[in-house]
Nucleic acid binder design. Sequence first.
DNA 1: GACTGGCACTCGCTACAGTCGAGTGCCAGT
DNA 2: ACTGGCACTCGACTGTAGCGAGTGCCAGTC
Lengths: 340, 340
Amino acid sequence: MGLDDRKLAVLRAIVEDYVATQEPVGSKALVERHQLGVSPATVRNDMAVLEEEGYIRQPHTSAGRVPTDRGYRLFVDRLSRVKPLSPAERRAIERFLVGAVDLDDVVHRTVRLLAQLTRQVAVVQYPSLARSSVRHLELVPISTTRLMLVMIADTGRVEQRLVELPAPIPADHVTDLRRLVNEKLVGSRLSETPPLVQALVDESAPHLRGAMTTLSTVLLETLVERHEERIALAGTANLTRGGLLDFQGSLRPILEALEEEVVLLKLIGEAEPSTTRVLIGDENEIDNLRAASVVSTGYGPGATIVGGLGVLGPTRMDYPGTIATVRAVARYVGELLAQN
Amino acid sequence: MGLDDRKLAVLRAIVEDYVATQEPVGSKALVERHQLGVSPATVRNDMAVLEEEGYIRQPHTSAGRVPTDRGYRLFVDRLSRVKPLSPAERRAIERFLVGAVDLDDVVHRTVRLLAQLTRQVAVVQYPSLARSSVRHLELVPISTTRLMLVMIADTGRVEQRLVELPAPIPADHVTDLRRLVNEKLVGSRLSETPPLVQALVDESAPHLRGAMTTLSTVLLETLVERHEERIALAGTANLTRGGLLDFQGSLRPILEALEEEVVLLKLIGEAEPSTTRVLIGDENEIDNLRAASVVSTGYGPGATIVGGLGVLGPTRMDYPGTIATVRAVARYVGELLAQN
DNA sequence: GACTGGCACTCGCTACAGTCGAGTGCCAGT
DNA sequence: ACTGGCACTCGACTGTAGCGAGTGCCAGTC
């Protein structure tokens, strides 16, 4: 059961070679390319053990070995060290993110950058509303019975909703409403607003009561219930690299999964502070993504997390490099956000 | 040179069969499936003519015929009539679009609906800023030297930008600025704003001059220069239908093209009023999309066009059905927009 | 003159057999 | 505990043969 150092070295070598060549790796090729100091026959014995333990497998008899999901897992956990980024990559990140003019811009640049650096599919979640605070609420009269509600969050996100009032409302009442909701709600986390909104209705003057009631339902919907999470995606064309060998020939399930925002949120959005999460193949809960791996992490200004980002690719992936890139990009984005 | 009626009927039959079966169609199968009233041999002669004229071709000797781009073009222009939508489809459209709460919602629902109905890749352009008018401008103080500029367009689009002021500004000056820009700009088309913005700077009181100058550059950038067109995409998984036969085996170029917003805008965004545009294969200017066809049209409230929408799929596509669906969806979206 | 039936021909597809070689498992020897 | 050697497996590739859908052409018919 014990895997001695050499067996681990063999596993590492297999993973590295397979990731590089995309072909099953045999015992002879292994000893040629790595200084293992033993003969192919010995390596074969080690391989037999590794296979028995479920870390590698043979696509067919008389072929080389290929890492299993479990093998990648061991590799990621114990056999790899995060590669430091090359200076060129650092420069690329900085150059790419400087000059973003607004949140949309930041997110779009980030997702493209991530896709380009990792050569995988990149996913970036917009700063989550649930983790944002209200910076300002604006009411814009559209007609006498319609208002446009605009909510600006401290993370830079802006949400708008149309409010249909039960009765026409004069302009100065709108001013009152605006003042009231701002006084009460600005600065609070969105998740904490429901009681405040309720208080607003209860405390509002009679002439505003009707409008405030309608407004409050829209507010609650916008701020809390409709957890409007947004996602940006880039690099789907990278799925076609490596021919059709990865993803066992069909991109279908992957593309389908990528279209479901809910699915992506599950992948990317549940990050814990400063941890990089790596999901390998089967570890993934989504059936369509059983052939893929996901590397994700949270980002945010300072130590707080406001959203997640990550990449998705074949299980046969350069984990150390990808992990390093994902982390670095998340850190830079966090710094960028902190400046606002 | 003259293509008599029967030759046209043969072409139509070839297109229909090929679209349905995805296999080259031979003379015998043709006479069996369509009432052409002649023998296979005669059809073969007609086919030879059609091939000579470039409307069909043989993938290889001793295979059936397949329509060329030119053949599809003739089919679309002269041999097909737009299919009326089924009641089920009408209902689907209505059910899908009712209940959209804001512009984002409308666009997302539309693009998914379109992808689902046509079973192709759907693209929807957000209402173009160039074709919108200013409904309201809002300035939200973030700090003493920073403002958030929020522009609400009549089409429902909301754009925001951060403004870094050259010097701290008191709250009542912000109020003044807000009033001034709204007085001057509300109601005008975005494309017409530059002189108005310039006038704002020239006419502004000395104590606002500095802030107004900075604001004006951001305004111009946001409103005019940075033609921030947005695009929604759905149904990329549909590209994998029909195995790898369509798109000659590689989705790569297609996926790459779909990632370029500029490319999509070219495809979708240049719609003329109430025309449905059909681009078949080679007619497409974008090299990556030489194997694809695009059906697109404009949409907007009433007769005006504020944006484009359409679908992209293999040249082997059900043109009459797709055209009908695209048109119908565009009409419904227009109506929906008119209600706001 | 337009259409048709018949016929020879083409050529991709499939199945099958044979060869090659990378890679393995096992075992006896050091 | 490691190694060299050996028999074995099996996928990849090659070449051959037969099948069949489909064609082009031509002579014959209405």
